[in-house]
Design a protein around this nucleic acid. Structure first.
Length: 311
DNA sequence: AAACAGACCAACCGCAATAAC
DNA sequence: TGTTATTGCGGTTGGTCTGTT
């Protein structure tokens, strides 16, 4: 448990105790350890659903809505925490370009990520980038910047990371393989913390989520101008029936990996050619979308593309 | 060291769709 | 069939952390 969480919990315990007198009042605000424990225990034995009655039976002075949100966004054992990986960033950009702010739909293709997390990512990172580039996040200019600069750059970084890890694993097992999502590091700014959120409760859960991948294909979508990604009916479907006997089956490709593979096959080589032709220094620079220098670079590249009439 | 600003994210709110009665 | 309860979604808010001045 990190310091931030520890502080939050100790504060919450205090708040919880102070509010114990308010028997009739519904609690609001941050969840306490006790509440998390009650909710997790209740759901792990009796399952999800009927959130209002669940809240009552579990002895929680919370609305059903609040319980549902807490479970889905935080306590659910397959919630994946930590930084958004490059693959996930790429997927978010692509899916958002197709569906807009359909966060829950987008989240279906990012196993373990919640709509709230993706929404927060979009608002804090992507919209910030649009602001820095002085364009509207919904403008064609920004979409083109994503399409021709940002997304290909992400693909390249993923490829680079993949090449590095396979080289490394051939020699020694020093870096996790890209097919192992559970330990896939974020090359942006840290490593995924894939711990379940039961950890701080001292709970060990058998519950597991499972991703069922399938075949995928990529074509260029005339409508969006971006890649059309047909995942098939079963792909990206996260099964949320928590059978204790269920266990994660072998290392299988996730939807994002299918997507990436298909995209590499069909769509992006031309983009790489295009951009490398326009920007000779492209492959030399490190694409870290978080730093100011990168945004300066991106602005320069964007301007070059505009000057070349590529958009 | 203090004040401030911006980033981040958990949680809430309002609304619409759906289910239950 | 109408009403009420529940669920799910997207937008927004507010608290905390972190970096800067």
């Amino acid at each position: 448990m990190d310091g931030k969480r520890s502080l939050e919990i100790s504060k919450n315990i205090g708040d919880f105790e102070n509010n114990m007198d308010d028997e009739m009042d519904l609690r609001r605000g941050p969840w306490t350890v006790e509440e998390d424990y009650k909710l997790s225990n209740y759901i792990s034995t009796l399952g999800e659903g009927r959130w209002n009655s669940l809240a009552r039976f579990a002895g929680l002075k919370r609305t059903g809505k609040s319980c549902r949100l807490r479970w889905l966004n935080y306590l659910r054992p397959d919630v994946r925490r930590g930084n958004i990986t490059l693959e996930e960033q790429l997927l978010i950009l692509e899916l958002h370009s197709r569906w807009g702010n359909r966060w829950s739909k987008i989240a279906q293709y990012l196993p373990g990520r919640t709509d709230n997390e993706i929404k927060n990512y979009w608002r804090t990172r992507v919209q910030k980038h649009a602001k820095q580039l002085r364009c509207d996040v919904n403008s064609q200019q920004f979409k083109d910047t994503m399409k021709y600069l940002w997304m290909p750059r992400l693909v390249e970084r993923i490829q680079a990371a993949s090449a590095l890890s396979s080289t490394c694993s051939a020699a020694t097992s020093c870096v996790p393989t890209p097919t192992d999502q559970s330990v896939m590091p974020s090359y942006d700014e840290g490593v995924n913390n894939n711990n379940t959120n039961m950890d701080h409760l001292g709970l060990t859960s058998n519950l597991s989520g499972k991703v069922t991948p399938g075949t995928s294909s990529v074509t260029v979508s005339p409508a969006s101008g971006l890649t059309e990604y047909n995942m098939g009916s079963e792909v990206g479907k996260t099964e949320t029936s928590y059978d204790p006997d269920q266990s994660l089956v072998g290392p299988q490709p996730t939807p994002s990996q299918n997507y990436l593979a298909a995209m590499q096959e069909q769509s992006y080589p031309n983009l790489f050619e295009n951009i490398n032709g326009i920007i000779p220094s492209y492959s030399d620079s490190v694409w870290n979308i978080g730093s100011d220098e990168d945004f300066w670079l991106l602005q320069q590249q964007q301007q070059q593309l505009l000057n070349n009439g590529s958009f």
